[in-house]
């Protein structure tokens, strides 16, 4: 029993990491006033770049950084279509998801002569941070021995984010640009550039998320690798109403659902339905919020 709990905890943490990284990016973006539907596209980009660069350089660090930077650049360009060319952010986001999926497939096909799955030689995976001996610790041992740098970075980000958003100049200005762009402009801020920064930030973190998906254990790229995790991340920060710590806990719960799907199947809970739980939670959350608002307005 204890052993199962250990395994589930370890798997939950690992599976939560990519969702959490993308959600961190998405929630900062949304605090800056842009709902980013294209986290998925940037995760896919990140995963692809990470595998290619890791294979080419043999360095997981360079690979992760490259993934993040490429995704951030895509995020920035995407942001320009919204803030400067006034594209509808939802449609442009869905369009970017289609475009990037096509583009990545195209490059894979043409550049690497692969279709669907890309296997590269000498892909260096993310290292484990702690010595194997920690596995002996009760309950958390397995989770600790699995810890990789991106998981640690994700949780450190969660810990730092509330402080950074509240207490740095950039954090404050970003929130002002999201909450009331005309006010930000009235006090002399460039609200569009702030929003562009937010989208590039989301791209950066989604790139990390993709890198984690590709390099945490499997070491290859697959077109279906992200499997809607960008949208699960969206669900997470929507459900937690943009609060970093709340979002992290929701992500952990989604990771837990992911980790236990197979086990729950044996007790009769179908994995497909469990997979819809994050999405159902968001709709339910939105309904409850709206219901409360309406009740308050009538009171």
């Amino acid at each position: 029993m204890m052993q199962i709990a250990e395994q589930v905890l370890a798997a939950s943490v690992v599976l939560a990491t990519p969702i959490l990284l993308a959600a961190i990016g998405g929630l900062v973006n949304r605090q800056g006033g842009i709902v980013n539907i294209a986290l998925e596209a940037k995760m896919l980009t990140g995963a692809f770049v990470a595998v290619v660069v890791s294979s080419a350089t043999g360095s997981w660090g360079v690979a992760v950084l490259a993934a993040a930077i490429v995704s951030a650049a895509i995020g920035y360009l995407f942001s320009l279509t919204i803030t400067r060319a006034r594209a509808n952010m939802i449609i442009a986001g869905l369009g970017l998801n289609v475009l990037v999926a096509g583009f990545v497939g195209f490059i894979m096909n043409v550049g690497f002569d692969a279709s669907g799955t890309l296997r590269m030689p000498h892909v260096e995976l993310l290292p484990k941070l702690l010595p194997g001996s920690v596995a002996a610790l009760p309950l958390v041992g397995e989770a600790l021995s699995d810890l990789d740098p991106l998981t640690v970075f994700a949780w450190l980000s969660v810990a730092a984010l509330p402080f950074l958003l509240a207490n740095t100049r950039l954090g404050l200005r970003l929130r002002a640009a999201g909450n009331a762009p005309h006010v930000a402009r009235a006090v002399g801020l460039r609200e569009k550039s702030l929003q562009d920064f937010g989208t590039a930030f989301a791209g950066f973190y989604s790139g990390l998320a993709g890198a984690h998906l590709a390099l945490a254990s499997i070491g290859l790229f697959n077109e279906g690798l992200t499997a809607g995790r960008g949208f699960i991340a969206l669900a997470a920060f929507y459900f937690a109403r943009n609060r970093p710590v709340g979002t992290a806990l929701v992500c952990l719960f989604f990771g837990f659902l992911d980790a236990t799907q197979i086990r729950l199947q044996t007790v009769g809970l179908p994995p497909q339905l469990i997979g819809t739980l994050p999405y159902a939670m968001v709709i339910l959350g939105l309904c409850l919020t709206a219901w409360n608002l309406k009740r308050k307005a009538q009171a």
Partner: peptide, 23 residues
């Protein structure tokens, strides 16, 4: 030819983005 099917997605995604941009 050597052109992969994915070119269709590239075109479709670009159409979606450009269709909502104010050109």
């Amino acid at each position: 030819s050597d052109v992969p099917l994915d070119i269709v997605n590239v075109i479709e995604g670009t159409v979606m983005i450009f269709a909502v941009m104010e050109l």
